Every structure is written in structure tokens, then in C-alpha cells.
Amino acid sequence: MKLLIIEDDINLANTLARRLTKQGFTCEVAHNQSDALLAARKLLPNFILLDMKLGDDNGLALINPLRSLLAQAHIVLLTGFASIATAVEAMRLGANDYLTKPVDMATLLKALNAEPVASVSVSVSVSSAIDDAVMSPERLEWEHIQQVLHSNNGNVSVTARQLNMHRRTLQRKLQKKPVQQ
């Protein structure tokens, strides 16, 4: 089982590689988009762990090229800034699973060993989470900011203007972790 870990945090990537090697995976690590595509062509992995934020780049942009290169690979997107909007976007682009950091090893192994059918259950769980959970005003604000930011291709200044918010205030809100509910 070949696994490509695409993570800009070198310590986290090495830790994941060590732990997953003990679980029977042959791991390769890449820290940016260009190295990731080269490693994917060389290794032809069955599984890919993809960080959503790769330095200044967005990991979502890698899903299409990886999916076209490795149609059968199981792609798990990892993020420290989870939102329903990005989860839906990741699934739409072709990710099989979406996990928030920090992730425990049992959850990660479960996501990696899932069959391709698991992508259906993940998207259902995301939509059922929308129906079942009542969001707090803080979480609702976070989701709205993420959607507007995504529609502006990550442009903070334009997003701040659309939200009638000072750019610096928006940057502070984006640096905070999202509220759970």
C-alpha cells in the first residue's frame, strides 16, 4: 500500500510517515504542489493524504491533477480550518474523505482503509450534519466568511469589502480556529 503525504509542516509529515509505515504503508512525503505532482507520478500511490493549506497554496487545487493522474487513488484531505463549504468543495473536486486536524491515528487509518463507497457516506454525513446540528452564531459567521472568501478565490481585501468589515478584522477572524458548533 503506497501512500503519498502532501503536508507543508515537515515535522507533522515525518511523524505521519513514521506512524503509517508501522501500519504497513510505504510512505513518500512532499511539502509543496510541484514536489507532490512529481512524487505522485513517480510513486503512483494508492492513497494520498493532502493538506488543505500548503504554505501559500491551496491543497484543493491539487485534487483535480491528482485525480486525473491517479483515478483510483483514495484521497483524504486534512485541514486545520474545517468548514462545511470546504468539505463540500473537496468532495465535489474528487476527495474521498475530509478530516480535521488534529486527527487521531484510528480515525486516519479508518479513512485510509475505506473503500471508494465511503465517499458517499462522507457526503451524506456532511449534509446530515447541516440538518441535525443547530449552529451557533459564531459558527454561522465562520461558515459565511469561508464561503465568501472561497467565492473571491481567497482574496481577503475583496472579501472584507463584501462583508463590510475592515481587512485587519477579517484577518484576525481567519487566524482563529473555527467554533465547533
Results as ranks from 00 to 15, higher is better:
residue 96 N to E: 08
residue 122 V to A: 05
residue 26 T to W: 01
residue 104 D to W: 12
residue 32 N to S: 07
residue 87 A to T: 03
residue 113 N to S: 07
residue 172 R to E: 09
residue 61 A to L: 13
residue 1 M to L: 13
residue 77 L to M: 15
residue 113 N to Y: 07
residue 177 K to D: 05
residue 13 A to N: 06
residue 52 M to P: 02
residue 120 V to Q: 12
residue 180 Q to S: 14
residue 84 I to E: 00
residue 64 N to A: 13
residue 60 L to C: 03
residue 117 V to E: 14
residue 42 K to G: 00
residue 32 N to K: 13
residue 99 L to I: 15
residue 81 F to M: 10
residue 109 L to V: 12
residue 169 T to S: 11
residue 55 G to E: 08
residue 68 S to G: 06
residue 39 A to M: 07
residue 158 V to K: 15
residue 83 S to C: 04
residue 76 V to D: 01
residue 143 E to V: 09
residue 119 S to Q: 14
residue 114 A to V: 10
residue 123 S to Y: 03
residue 87 A to C: 07
residue 82 A to G: 12
residue 65 P to K: 12
residue 123 S to W: 11
residue 143 E to A: 03
residue 121 S to R: 14
residue 37 L to T: 10
residue 155 N to M: 04
residue 136 S to D: 09
residue 58 N to A: 00
residue 86 T to G: 00
residue 75 I to Q: 05
residue 91 M to H: 06
residue 112 L to R: 08
residue 125 S to I: 06
residue 105 M to L: 14
residue 85 A to L: 03
residue 66 L to K: 11
residue 91 M to A: 09
residue 29 V to W: 10
residue 38 L to E: 11
residue 21 T to E: 12
residue 44 L to C: 03
residue 167 R to P: 00
residue 145 I to L: 08
residue 166 H to I: 12
residue 48 I to N: 03
residue 161 R to M: 06
residue 75 I to D: 02
residue 1 M to C: 02
residue 124 V to Q: 13
residue 76 V to Y: 02
residue 132 D to R: 14
residue 154 G to V: 15
residue 34 S to W: 00
residue 83 S to R: 07
residue 31 H to Q: 13
residue 81 F to N: 07
residue 21 T to C: 08
residue 176 K to D: 07
residue 167 R to Y: 01
residue 23 Q to V: 06
residue 175 Q to N: 12
residue 97 D to Q: 15
residue 100 T to W: 00
residue 112 L to G: 09
residue 81 F to E: 07
residue 3 L to D: 03
residue 123 S to F: 10
residue 52 M to G: 11
residue 45 P to H: 05
